[in-house]
């Protein structure tokens, strides 16, 4: 005798999607980072190590100055974590579909949940690291305006939405064209140096500045520094543009993803 059937069809719409997202999200956090014993710690420490290396290279070797009157640490830290969140999301998210190949071949479910869970897990870890670092910097006497988080957190959300769109696009292509992940590595590396993360936009020659400023991540870095380092809370037209762009990128990425995802089963 088996128990009464569970009537999944009578559940509220989206219940299955939510349950799956929660499951995949937990899986991404635990398997990916806890898989190795030091995984979770490493995910948080990795940006700190990077920050330390940059600090050593730029201040001890190059004796770089001119960080808008800020210490190099605070100047880079406010921009580094969200950039790493975006970069890691793209790297991991692009290949995320392959990790679910067995399920995709056998069970019907919206494949975009895989991408959402992958990106969400990466952003969660980097945001935790970010908040901890901001508090530590503040406590150690750096001029951090915690009130600026009222701007910074929405900026993270806008970046999250846009990056998710990009990852949807890339991950769908990756299923068919395996080179995507290999091309992505150097592209992200170049993008990082073209984004004013390790240097202020003011050091860029005036003729090139508009081009660098076109990079959406330049907007992100600028807004975070304004809010957290300067305490400037005013909104700009560029913010509205960023919202529109990130939503457009998301919608476009999702459209491409949904066109291709019915065919994943044959290619994963």
């Amino acid at each position: 005798m088996h128990p009464a059937p569970t009537h999944a069809s009578r559940r509220p719409i989206g219940a299955r999607e939510r349950a799956l997202f929660a499951n995949f999200y937990r899986r991404e956090l635990t398997l990916r980072y806890l898989g190795s014993t030091t995984g979770f710690a490493w995910a948080l420490v990795h940006p700190l190590v990077l920050l330390g290396v940059y600090h050593f290279v730029f201040t001890s070797i190059f004796h770089a100055t001119g960080f808008a009157g800020q210490s190099f640490l605070a100047f880079v830290a406010v921009a580094l974590w969200p950039w790493l969140a975006a970069q890691e999301s793209m790297q991991r998210g692009t290949i995320s579909i392959a990790g679910y190949s067995g399920m995709i071949r056998k069970v019907a479910f919206p494949h975009e949940i895989v991408v959402y869970a992958s990106v969400a897990a990466t952003f969660t870890l980097q945001l935790i690291g970010y908040l901890v670092v901001l508090v530590v910097l503040k406590a150690s006497g750096e001029a951090i305006h915690l009130r600026g988080l009222l701007i910074a957190l929405p900026v993270w959300v806008i970046v999250l939405v846009g990056v998710t769109g990009v990852v949807l696009f890339l991950s769908a292509l990756q299923v068919f064209i395996r080179d995507i992940e290999h091309i992505l590595m150097p592209v992200l590396m170049i993008l990082m140096y073209l984004t004013p993360i390790l240097y202020p936009l003011t050091l860029v020659p005036a003729s090139l500045r508009p081009w660098v400023a076109l990079n959406p991540f330049s907007w992100m870095v600028g807004r975070l520094r304004d809010a957290l380092l300067e305490g400037r809370m005013a909104l700009h037209w560029a913010d509205a543009a960023a919202v529109v762009v990130s939503i457009a990128v998301f919608v476009g990425g999702l459209a491409v993803f949904r066109r291709l995802s019915p065919h994943f089963e044959d290619f994963v």
């Binding site: 999944a8 559940r11 219940a15 939510r18 349950a19 899986r27 679910y100 067995g102 056998k106």
Partner: peptide
């Protein structure tokens, strides 16, 4: 056995199978 993930433990796979049917843990 279709929704099983090889990296998951038996317990985690039970939860996954439930999630595929829309059930929370």
């Amino acid at each position: 056995g279709s929704g099983f993930h090889p990296e998951y433990t038996g317990l985690a796979n039970i939860e996954l199978a439930a999630a595929l049917l829309g059930l929370a843990p």
